[in-house]
Simulated scan of single mutants.
Amino acid sequence: MKHRRSAPVVLLALVGAVFLLSACGPSNSVRLLPPPPLDASVLPAPNAPSVSVVSFADKRVDTASIGVRRDGSAFSTTGDVAPWISRALADELARSGFQVSFATNVSQARSGNPDYLVTGQVDEVWLKESSSTEISSQMRVKCTLANRKGRLWSESCNASQSRSGLPSGSTAEDLLLDTLRDLVKPMAQKIVQTIETRKQ
C-alpha cells in the first residue's frame, strides 16, 4: 500500500522537474548580444588602410523570426540582425589594425573616401530547438570587398554551432554570439589577406 501511495508523489515530482527544466530554457524572445568591446589599446597601425563597413542588407525570407522552437513557435528578436553582424565584422577588422568606420549605407561610406569598402547581405540567421536539451544555430552571409577601382573579393560565408545539456535562459543568446564570432573571424581574415596582398 505504501508503494501505491508513493507512486503519485514520484509522478508529481517528475512532472515538476520537467516543468522546471522547461521554465529555465530559452524564451521566444532572444537578445542579440554584442561581442566584447574593442580594447582601448587597439589602435590603427601607422599608414593603415581605411576600411568602411556598410551595414549589410537583410535578405532573409522571414525577417520577423530567427528560428523555431520544438513546439513550433518562433524565436524572435527585438534587435536588427544585419547591423549586428556588420558591426561585429567592423570590430574584428579594427582589431587587425585597420582604420575602420561603420556606415549605414554606401553613400555615407563613400563620403569618407575610404581605401576599401565592405558590403554584404544576410541570407540566414536561424535557431532550431530540437529538444529541451539541444539547440543549434546556422548563419550565412555574402560579403564583398572592393577598392576604388572595383570588386576584389566576394564570398558566401557560413557558421554553425550546437549546444547540448541542461537549458538556461541565456542558452540561445550565448549560442548566437558564439556563432557570430565563428562567422566574422574568418571573414575578417580573408579581407585582411586580400588587402595585404594588394599592398605588396
Rank of each mutant, 00 (worst) to 15 (best):
S164D: 06
L11G: 10
A74N: 13
C143G: 05
A103E: 01
S137H: 04
E92C: 04
I85T: 05
A103Y: 00
L175A: 07
S131W: 03
L180Q: 14
L152C: 11
V141F: 03
L183G: 04
L145P: 04
F19D: 01
S168D: 14
D71R: 07
V53F: 01
E129D: 12
L33H: 04
P37H: 03
S76D: 05
A146R: 11
E92V: 09
I191N: 05
S160V: 07
A172I: 00
E92T: 12
T144Q: 12
F19G: 02
S27D: 10
R95P: 01
L89M: 10
R69K: 15
G112T: 11
E173T: 06
L43G: 02
G169C: 05
S136I: 04
E124M: 07
P44M: 02
L152T: 05
N28E: 12
I85S: 03
K2P: 04
D178C: 03
P167F: 09
R60Q: 14
Q138F: 08
T77A: 09
S156L: 10
N147S: 05
V118G: 02
S154W: 03
G165N: 06
D182R: 13
W126G: 13
S131Y: 08
A188N: 04
G16C: 11
S6D: 15
P186Y: 03
D91Y: 09
V30W: 00
W126M: 12
A172V: 00
S107Y: 09
S41K: 09
N147D: 15
S170E: 09
K185R: 15
Q161L: 14
V81N: 06
G25Q: 07
R95D: 04
R151S: 11
K199E: 10
R151I: 05
T63Y: 04
P186I: 03
S22Q: 15
R95H: 07
R198A: 13
Q121E: 14
R95A: 10
A146W: 04
L20C: 09
R5D: 08
G120M: 02
N47P: 01
R60E: 04
K2V: 12
D80V: 07
G120F: 01
H3K: 13
A45Y: 04
V81E: 04
S96M: 11
A23L: 03
G165I: 11
N28M: 08
Q193Y: 12
P114E: 06
G72D: 07
V122T: 05
L38A: 03
L20Y: 12
P49F: 03
A17M: 13
V118H: 02
A57K: 11
P36S: 10
Q108R: 11
P37T: 06
C24G: 13
L21G: 08
S73Q: 12
P26H: 03
L11I: 14
I135N: 00
S164C: 01
L21Q: 08
T63S: 15
T63R: 15
S136K: 05
D115P: 02
Q161R: 14
T77G: 08
L175I: 07
T171H: 08
D80Y: 06
T78K: 15
V15I: 15
D91Q: 14
T78D: 13
T63E: 13
S111Q: 13
D123G: 08
T171Q: 14
